[in-house]
Each structure stands twice: as structure tokens, then as C-alpha cells.
Write a protein that binds this DNA or RNA. Structure first.
Length: 185
DNA sequence: CACAGGATATACT
DNA sequence: GTATATCCTGTGA
């Protein structure tokens, strides 16, 4: 089943765990989501916490769209906007298990080792060729394609990564035992 | 393991 | 205006 726009128009804390095991493909290249993090409006670590800026504009837009931002001036990071327009809640996609377009990924990443192709938010954006041009695009249309996670997906929860504010909130979700996690849960 | 790389935003002077 | 921090990764110690 394809994920519809309505899927994202719910609490980010409901959407995030349901995205683990889902299929994410961009222009035919992608795989299974194995790690995400939730960011809500009351979260000091969220880009939306201090209000709208030119960078985080799409976070404040309608749900079911992409929010792509540049991290540390070097990498791109892909978020999926949730809840409703103006809420500024989103799910950060941190790692996927590559299943489609492995060749393209290796070319883009200049790397052979499968485990490192997409295990990390910046890495997966490079492998799927996600850039600022995808910022604000709908997730139910090309170049994106999102497929529902199987009910059997075993999701585990743990602390988030790389942040100092509210780092203790257990809002990182991962596929149990996956070797493609950016960090073990 | 430490650290450079360098856009964006905020908190200072 | 300058300084500091950040949802990170590759490289070299």
C-alpha cells in the first residue's frame, strides 16, 4: 500500500514508529526505512521550535511533504512533515536498508560497502540524490514513492543522536537488529 | 579517537 | 559586526 497524504496528518509520535519498515524510493532508488527520529513543536532540538525562518519554511507547510535542509554546511537531511500546516512537526529519516538502485547509490557515494551507503541522514540523501531541490515536494508524487511498512516490523525505541537539547527524549525509532542502523538501538 | 568542512541561525558586543 | 552551536561525515592520527 502506498502511503497517502492523510498518513502524515497525525501526531508525529504516531507517524514516526509506523515509518520504520516502510519503503522510501526517490527516482527508483531507495529501500526500507530502518531508522527515524521524531521532532515536535515543543522540542528545543527541532528547527521549528524558534519559529519560521527561510530555511525551515516547509516544516511549517502542509503535512505529507519533504523538508530538506543543509546540515553542518555540507550534508543534506530529509524530513517528512507531519501533523498540520503551521505545526512544524517532522520525522527525520536517519537510515535505510538499500534494496533498489544499488549501482546508482555506489556511484553517487563513491563506495562499495553496502552497509555505509545509507546509514546516516547525510549519507542516505547523497545515495538517493536528495537535495534542496526536493524541499517542499509532495511525498505521494514523483520523484518520491513511499510504501507502507509490514505489520510484522519489529520497532524499537531509544535516545536520539547528535543533539544536546532534550537528548533524553526517546524519540528515535529503529528496526530491531538491522545492521543498517546509523547507531545501535 | 580528534577534527576540519562550512550554511544557517542565534546570541552576544 | 563577531562568536558560537548545530538533527553530520570523511579523513587522518
Amino acid at each position: 500500500m502506498r502511503l497517502a497524504q492523510e498518513f502524515f496528518a497525525r501526531s508525529v509520535h504516531d507517524v514516526a514508529p509506523e515509518l520504520v519498515g516502510a519503503t522510501l524510493v526517490v527516482n527508483g532508488v531507495g529501500g526500507r526505512i530502518v531508522e527515524v527520529e521524531a521532532y515536535d513543536r515543543e522540542d528545543p532540538a527541532s528547527h521549528g521550535f524558534r519559529g519560521q525562518t527561510p530555511r525551515n519554511r516547509s516544516m511549517f507547510g502542509p503535512p505529507g511533504r519533504a523538508y530538506v535542509y543543509r546540515s553542518y554546511g555540507v550534508h543534506w537531511c530529509l524530513n517528512l512533515v507531519c501533523e498540520e500546516e503551521g505545526t512544524a512537526a517532522a520525522v527525520l529519516v536517519r537510515a535505510i536498508e538499500p534494496t533498489r538502485g544499488l549501482g546508482a547509490m555506489r556511484d553517487r557515494r563513491g563506495l562499495k560497502e553496502e552497509r555505509l551507503l545509507c546509514s546516516g541522514p547525510g549519507r542516505l540523501c547523497q545515495a538517493l540524490a536528495v537535495t534542496g531541490e526536493h524541499d517542499g515536494l509532495r511525498l505521494d508524487r514523483r520523484p518520491f514513492a513511499l510504501g507502507e511498512a509490514p505489520a510484522s516490523a519489529h520497532v524499537v525505541r531509544g535516545p536520539r543522536v547528535g543533539i544536546s537539547q532534550a537528548a533524553e527524549l526517546p524519540w528515535r525509532y529503529g528496526l530491531a537488529g538491522s545492521r543498517f542502523l546509523s547507531r545501535v538501538l
